[in-house]
Each structure stands twice: as structure tokens, then as C-alpha cells.
């Protein structure tokens, strides 16, 4: 294997890995860095289970090469909690029973966080379109949308104080 050596930042920590040039960032995160919170549902960008941020932008890790991560900042669900505290979205997903099987949950959380950072006070429609890249087969999305609304409200209050 003609491996490429990549230095990058994952969830704020400096990380180095070697991978084949054709390997996806999803496979790197899961198999080389043991960040299995990033899920693979399709591998073709159609389900959003592998949602991560790359330099702050929401992307599907399956559609990024590991080699592209050189010098970038990668954010995964494992980095959502800060200082031992769950992110308000994480709390509200539990409180609102917004997960059943939970396989789509990490992707939804990362996508919802990106959505609320861009738009702290989204309408229901904006939430629904903003999360349309994340498939959930269990919930019918009802409680997911409600959890995001609840978290948005809490986060707006937090911002004011």
C-alpha cells in the first residue's frame, strides 16, 4: 500500500494517521481512529449517518478522502460534549425520546448542531429541510424535530445570559 501520512485535528486534538490514498475519511475515523460513533448507513452520501464537520462545514465522511483531511479540522459526535457536559441537543434528544434504535442519532446531532450554529431560531420547515440529508427509519422524525426545537430554545436562552 502506498499510504499517505496525514496530520489533522479531530475534535480539537492533533492526530496523525496513515491510510491508502483511496480510503474514505469515514473508514479512517471508524477503523483507524476508533471513532465508531460515526456510522455508515450507505457509503454514498444518501443517509447522513456519517455526518461530520470539516473545517466547520457539515459533510458526509463517506464522501471525503482521508487524505483530504490534511491540515483540516474534523468534528464528530464524540466531540460534542464539552467539559464532561452533554450538548443541549444531546440532552434534548434523550428528553424528547428522539431516538429509537439510535443508529442515525450521531449524524442527526452533528447536522442539527451545524444547523443551529447557522440559524439559531429555525422554523419547523427550516429544521425539516436542514435535516433532510439524515435518514431516520424509526421515528417518523416527529420527536427529532421537537428535540431540535427544544434545544434551539435552550441554546438561545443560554446565549442571552
Amino acid at each position: 500500500m502506498n499510504g499517505v501520512t496525514v496530520s489533522t485535528t479531530v475534535n480539537g486534538d492533533a492526530v496523525q494517521f496513515v491510510c491508502p490514498p483511496s480510503e474514505s475519511l469515514l473508514d479512517v475515523l471508524r477503523n483507524r481512529l476508533n471513532l465508531t460513533g460515526v456510522k455508515e448507513g450507505c457509503g454514498t452520501g444518501d443517509c447522513g449517518a456519517c455526518s461530520i464537520t470539516l473545517d466547520g462545514r457539515l459533510v458526509c465522511a463517506c464522501l471525503v478522502l482521508g487524505a483530504e483531511a490534511e491540515g483540516r479540522e474534523v468534528g464528530t459526535v464524540e466531540g460534542m460534549s464539552e467539559n464532561g457536559e452533554l450538548h443541549p441537543l444531546q440532552v434534548q434528544f434523550i428528553e424528547n425520546a428522539a431516538l429509537q434504535c439510535g443508529i442515525c442519532t450521531p449524524g442527526f446531532l452533528v447536522a442539527a448542531k451545524a444547523l443551529l450554529e447557522r440559524n439559531p431560531n429555525p422554523t419547523e420547515e427550516e429544521i425539516r429541510y436542514g435535516l433532510a440529508g439524515n435518514l431516520c427509519r424509526c421515528t417518523g422524525y416527529d420527536k427529532i424535530v421537537r428535540a431540535v426545537q427544544a434545544a434551539a430554545k435552550i441554546m438561545r436562552k443560554g446565549r442571552k445570559s
Binding site: 460513533g37 456510522k39 459526535v77 464524540e78 452533554l86 434523550i94 431516538l99 443508529i103
Partner: peptide, 11 residues
């Protein structure tokens, strides 16, 4: 819940 919102749950 916490296992599943933090990515710790093992599928």
C-alpha cells in the same frame, strides 16, 4: 440514552 447520543453504543 447517553451511550446513544455520544456515539459510545456499539452496533
Amino acid at each position: 440514552g447517553i451511550d446513544k447520543v455520544t456515539g459510545r453504543a456499539k452496533y
